[in-house]
Design a protein around this nucleic acid. Sequence first.
DNA 1: AAAATTTTTGTAAATTTCTCACACTTTTTA
DNA 2: TAAAAAGTGTGAGAAATTTACAAAAATTTT
Lengths: 255, 255
Amino acid sequence: MRSQRLEEISRIFAVEPFVSLRELSERFPDLSEMTLRRDIEALEEAGEVIRVRGGARSVRFISRTGVDSITKREAENVDGKRRIAERAASFLEPGRSIFLDSGSTMRQLPSFIPEEKFSFTTTDPKLAVDLLRSGTAVVNMVGGRVERDNQTVTGLQATRFLTDVNVDIACLTPAGASLENGFTVGSYNECEVKRIVAAKARRTIVLVECSKLGKSLPYTFCGIGDADVLITDAELPDEYRRRAEESGVAVVVAV
Amino acid sequence: MRSQRLEEISRIFAVEPFVSLRELSERFPDLSEMTLRRDIEALEEAGEVIRVRGGARSVRFISRTGVDSITKREAENVDGKRRIAERAASFLEPGRSIFLDSGSTMRQLPSFIPEEKFSFTTTDPKLAVDLLRSGTAVVNMVGGRVERDNQTVTGLQATRFLTDVNVDIACLTPAGASLENGFTVGSYNECEVKRIVAAKARRTIVLVECSKLGKSLPYTFCGIGDADVLITDAELPDEYRRRAEESGVAVVVAV
DNA sequence: AAAATTTTTGTAAATTTCTCACACTTTTTA
DNA sequence: TAAAAAGTGTGAGAAATTTACAAAAATTTT
């Protein structure tokens, strides 16, 4: 029976991101290639797979993350970013007002967010859209001018907007982290936003990729000691760790 | 320059679910097919598209949960939406404050926007990101709560935000357009936003897909006669045209 | 139960698309 | 400025895919 076979093939695509026609022929040795072709075509019409040269790809394995020209930066150290994001997700508390910074690290977060009644506020338009995929969260977008290079909302309107918002938990991502200058970014406007958020937050979580360590950019939004939690993707140098612990910062190394 | 061209192709895939190699050849007449092939290959490696026989599919439009209502809506009548958007682009004036509504029709606009010093304000986070690709435009994002189903910013914060913004030209997209109720939408909050914008704008351009004609939803944001320009993708029924012309509305049929 | 119809399958030619290899050009780097 | 690298064009050859038609199986109808 055909429908039965379609189910079986469908089950293969539930596990494999790509199946070639040849593999399929091996699994069904007494069927002609043409029949398997037609089966794949039927699955494509059902929206389960996409036919590509040589076989078909399962839509389940096609991720929409990173659909952009800034993918270059985004593609760097994805693994570290994901590990950091995963840890950060465990600090989120339902019912609280949670601020999420913009940036490629934060954009890894949505896939780790459980289905709870979170209330998010963010300056990142892309992140806002991704957060909506969680069916239960409320998503607030900060208004203001969108900066071209880092795709974040800043400016007078943004700061004004944020003064009217309560923030319980803030997740912030600096562009640099150094002992001398603390957590820094390269844009004044962006700094202003982060500074306001950090000042308002009951709890500030700073997410730092190890590549940012030792770097220092023009504007500081808070000192290392001002964070409540510091999440990194690699063991901190001793100096940093000592400084953090002196100030009561909880250090989380996401490995 | 290659990277520039890749950006341009990427922009096409941002709004088009499938692009054939032939179409691409038409858009880039002095490039060999092989080069475009390699470009598509690069985009595939970047995770933006999936190469299929005859061209490539944009991953943005591939929904992993079977039928994603948003992506499905987005893929409907892309041609009509594009034609409407193209016409709308010709009404934009550099240096003016331009409001762009949310929705799938508006999301077709960025690829038609020339490199001028526009100043855009929008309630659509996705659109905001796409608008940034134009290197010269200033993009403002309206703040507020992001609605899940239509991915638009609404609510008290949004309306408050908009009262502080001047709008010269407003591009609005109704969900329904009828002689009795004018231009309508299904959400009260969304209506509120559109109403404010329409009232502020020196010039209101309403973009109506022909499928919306005769439909009426609960909330009216303005009457047919209140528009300054009405753009559709098919000839208007006589009644509508008469009504529009009586009120001095310029009707543009994008064919 | 036989006939008629529809659905499914197989075969092979025809077409299209894709890949590969190599030469040439432009851009970047040293 | 030379050398290296990256990007581009060409065309032949190798797929893979489509098409068309016929046969077989499953179905419905009579």
